[in-house]
Design a protein around this nucleic acid. Structure first.
Length: 343
DNA sequence: CGCGTTTGACCGGCGC
DNA sequence: GCGCCGGTCAAACGCG
């Protein structure tokens, strides 16, 4: 992998235990206001340094106001509060690390992918960045040096700079959209998320029998891309990585599929809104799935985000009222139609 | 015919 | 400089 250094996090809980614990860890209440409990059911249970110094999500969000700070927060909570060495040797990814680039300085716009599928588990975001999820079960974080340099530069469309015949100026590194990856226990590789994607590449993954597919949003001028690969360690797990932010509403929404998908928020919603929506999405769906037998839906399973998305500079705590605000935007319906529309 | 997929070639970054 | 590797391009192809 070029230009990307990684922090490696493993977890050797049995898989189902892992997912269940993840859901509990991301209890909706604790998601925004409480510290993750290190109780018997927390997947962080046996991780050291989970104590009062472990920031709440609110603290985590509020701690970021500029690139450098964000960068520090990139390592938090998992990378700084959890002793990394204790995470090595685990054979399953339970926590991602976020990295970010200069995109945090751009004007936020777009909506996160949503799911019209009532039972799918796919969550998404464009708000955070995480680099490669190595197929050998490691989560890699973009190198600090690269990231910091990127943070110093003005946001530009990263891929444009890489265009053929459009070489970047000297010293200019490729800009990356914020990324967010999550793992989904699923039989299908390409999870339906409400957007239309065009596959533009497929590459064999080193040390893995499963290829990695590259998709681009088919909407014109929408820069969002996503990568889909299957974990070779657990072929039932699909690792999906979103990059960028949608500049449009979901086609499903535009088609008026209100029975499946509530109206999507305006595409110019702040980044953190989409972020929370996505995080909620992954959480709520996971929670809902946690209460339902896996085999009730063979295609889609549980989802766990592999990274905590980064808030924008003006990130603030999402309180209950904020959640209501999200609801006002139809976000909750948008992200969890399976919950909203369930009989 | 339009749209999406496949697939080999190519590019650029990085490590040695 | 060279090779490896991730990522992207684009022509060919398939499908409805």
């Amino acid at each position: 992998m070029s230009g990307e250094k990684g922090e490696i996090y493993h977890h050797d809980h049995p898989q189902h235990h892992l997912f269940r614990d993840y859901n509990e860890f991301y209890d909706l209440a604790s998601l925004f206001s409480q510290r993750p409990t290190a109780g018997a059911n927390s997947f962080l249970h046996d991780l050291p340094s989970i104590d009062a110094s472990f920031p709440t999500f609110a603290e985590y969000f509020n701690s970021t106001s500029e690139h450098d700070t964000i960068y520090r927060s990139v390592d938090a909570p998992f990378a700084s509060n959890v002793k990394k060495e204790a995470l090595h040797g685990m054979d399953r990814v339970t926590s991602g690390v976020i990295s970010n680039n200069s995109s945090v300085s751009r004007a936020d716009s777009g909506t996160g992918p949503t799911t019209p599928n009532s039972s799918m588990s796919s969550s998404s975001t464009e708000a955070a960045a995480m680099d490669d999820c190595k197929i050998d079960g490691m989560v890699k974080q973009e190198g600090d040096e690269e990231v910091k340099q990127e943070a110093k530069t003005k946001f530009e469309e990263g891929d444009k700079a890489k265009k053929l015949n459009k070489p970047r100026s000297k010293g200019e590194k490729r800009q990356r959209q914020p990324r967010f990856a999550f793992m989904t226990k699923s039989e299908v590789d390409h999870l339906e998320d409400g957007y239309r994607w065009r596959k533009y590449g497929q590459k064999a993954v080193k040390n893995s029998p499963y290829p990695r597919s590259y998709y681009r949003c088919t909407t014109q001028k929408c820069p969002v891309k996503k990568r889909v690969e299957r974990s070779y360690q657990d072929p039932t797990v699909v690792i999906t990585t979103y990059e960028g932010k949608h500049t449009h509403q979901t086609p499903a929404t535009l088609r008026g599929s209100t029975h499946l998908l509530a109206p999507a928020p305006p595409p110019n919603l702040p980044l953190h809104v989409g972020f929370h929506r996505d995080l909620l999405m992954s959480h709520l769906v996971s929670s809902s799935m946690a209460t339902a037998p896996m085999d009730t839906n063979p295609s889609y399973g549980m989802t766990m985000p592999m990274s905590l998305p980064l808030p924008p500079p003006a990130q603030r705590m999402v309180s209950r009222s904020d959640q209501n605000q999200l609801t006002d935007y139809g976000l909750l319906q948008d992200i969890v139609p399976s919950l909203i529309n369930q009989p």
